[in-house]
Design a protein around this nucleic acid. Structure first.
Lengths: 200, 200
DNA sequence: TGTGGACACCTTGTATACACGGAGCATCCA
DNA sequence: TGGATGCTCCGTGTATACAAGGTGTCCACA
């Protein structure tokens, strides 16, 4: 059901989730709750330890860095292919950039994060490999938990993100793989650095 | 439980799986079967369509090609990093190559496929990014179904695979990224070509 | 007073019963 | 005769009851 939403930030890391309690809170029985917890395990939100239950995973700075590395590997590959084939930026990008700037002006962090994700996701999809695209998207849930922490603490980064998106779009339309990759590299390195700054 | 094994090749593509029947066959109740089916969905073995049940996914030639592209993207990245840092081939490789050749001599296809997977998997793990490694491994179940089809039809490829593994190990130990990548590219392009050959 | 063992309670894992929704078939009408 | 509609049956989705295992506490003994 609303499994993912439950974990947005309401539980402490390492905490064990009680199925019965969750069921009561959601107003359903344990069965759907169990299924939701299994989905959450698949999305790496919780560890299911036998006979103990679902433990909220701790997202370490190391893991976060690795997630962004993984994003870079997949998205850089997509960019390379897009430039090779001279496809240009995905057709949705102007619209998404527009919406992103609106969300930025309105200080709507949720919307902003979601649009940012869609921007990058549509670039990866533009390459045409559904398997890679699905992998890329599967990284999202894990980022969300950190995203709320970081973005809310650094709203001054909004304009920077917006600018880099526009630069990336332009570089893609110029079929310039090297430039696009360079921009992406900078773009994706900022968040892990923020995370590190907080955790050290 | 044994969910994954069930699907090794015993069900027709597109077939709907009946929970009650499966439960009877396994000798358990529907509840564990349902959980297994959900896991199988996470592994992309089945599609869970609401109120209809679990449908065995059809693995198209296109998807197979994309899976091998995805493998290449991740493994090539690992190889690049390994050569950059001059790590050399993973310490397990000599042993794995040895075992692979034994399996090849014994015509043990199952063992062969498993060792081949472990060989590549340990290269990706050698890079040190657990997120990418887990992604890479998650591709495996989907390959297995095709692997049995192709390998059993082309056992003459065993020596070729073995040779390429040895070449890849040597190239890694020589810290030669370009050569390693070239070998990997050839190595991973053969299977999709076989698949295409069968399906056309 | 500290440590070890046993018991009880609590939570997960499994089974079964019930509810809900869809798909297929039959029948009726055009 | 063909199509549409309604009914029935079957299979998934959910709830609840029961079993099993683990953890924490309490008591007894050293």
């Amino acid at each position: 059901m609303i499994g993912a939403a439950i974990l947005a930030g309401t539980f402490a890391e390492g905490e064990f989730l009680d199925e019965a309690v969750l069921a009561r809170e959601v107003g359903t029985s344990r069965t759907p709750v169990r299924e939701a917890l299994h989905r959450l395990q698949a999305e790496r939100f919780v560890d299911l330890v036998p006979r103990r239950g679902a433990q909220v995973r701790v997202v370490t700075a190391t893991e976060m860095r690795q997630i962004y590395q993984a994003r870079f590997v997949i998205e850089a590959n997509a960019i390379g292919k897009i430039c090779d084939r001279r496809l240009g930026a995905p057709p949705e990008t102007p619209e998404l950039i527009e919406a992103l700037e609106t969300a930025g002006r309105n200080q709507d962090w949720n919307e902003f994060a979601q649009l940012d994700q869609r921007f990058h996701s549509c670039i990866v999809q533009h390459q045409g490999n559904a398997v890679l695209a699905q992998m890329y998207d599967s990284l999202r849930p894990r980022q969300v938990r950190l995203a709320v922490r970081t973005i809310t603490q650094g709203p001054e980064r909004f304009p920077i993100i917006e600018r880099e998106h526009r630069e990336l779009e332009a570089a893609l339309n110029a079929h310039d793989a090297a430039l696009s990759t360079r921009i992406l590299n900078v773009h994706l390195q900022e968040v892990p650095e923020l995370v590190r700054a907080f955790s050290e």
